[in-house]
Amino acid sequence: MKWPRGLRLGLRVASGALRPKPLLGAFVALGIAELVGFFVTSRRKPDFADWAALVGPMAEERKQGELVVVAPSWAEPLARQALGDEVFPLRDVARPDVSRVRAALEVSALGERASELSGFRETGRREVGPFVIRRLENPSPAVVVFDFVDGLGPTQADVRVTSPEAACLWNPNARVLAGGLGGHPTFPAARFECPGGPFFSVGPTVIADQDFRPRRCLFSHPPARGEVVTRFAGVPLGTVIRGHGGMYWILERERKGAPVALAVRVDGEEIGRWEHRDGDGWAAFEMPLGAHAGKTSATVEFFVSSKNHAHRHFCFEADTR
């Protein structure tokens, strides 16, 4: 059988395609380049010890209450270890978003930038060893009048369930409980305890959202029947009630649970109803306050319910702005 001319030609070209001398040089170069690459990448700053150098400069740069964001985000544990809870308070680390942030300090390493601050304006910059500290300002920060997660406590809030009607008692020294992998978020020591056991409590905790980012929120597991109602009294109001809701992503990603409903009433009038469906992740809601806007003192109630309460580890945060 005679082979086609093209095939014969192709095979001849292929058989002579390896050019020995250039290839030898290329492999010697590659071996050296990879070795150099290894030393460069493995010794690239910052190392663990370098983060301590940020303590002084950050104390000088950071104004009280300013958000600190680390880029790349995977390095944040090192920054938290070096700078501590004062620079990284839980409410900042597990923030709902950055819409209310006026100014932030971005600690950048390896040339990385924090994408969530991309709309912010750079107003200052300082280099500290392998780090760049940038002062960034939000061109249009929201003015939060009241934060409902911060406001949860016996002085301004109470919690009840509706079916059967029962009060949930404030316990500042409840037993802290953490659910482990795939389990519930930690039930904090200070929380409102409803009938039915520790799952039926309302208190501030932190969940992992769809990107496994931390979100601080009020754990508010719906009861088997009726609703769990968290009421805040004497709340100054802005023009909207805005917030987010969700649950530990491992629980909701299978999309098998029933939707969770969140209704908000202001001085007895329902101003909005929002539904969280599995797979929504950490999702935002916003409810206009209409005629209630601007009140200096109002009663705000959050009603949480679900048609099937199994594994509904619902958690929400809200503010009025």
Binding site: Q81, L90, V93, A94, V206, A208, P214, I250
Partner: peptide, 24 residues
């Protein structure tokens, strides 16, 4: 990561006491 957050709330801190790993 949910378990790291569980520790934050249980222990009242986000500051690791010790971090270890490879090449920083």
């Amino acid at each position: 990561l949910g378990q790291e957050y569980q520790a934050w709330v249980a222990y009242g801190t986000v500051q690791p006491a010790h971090v270890a790993g490879l090449h920083g």
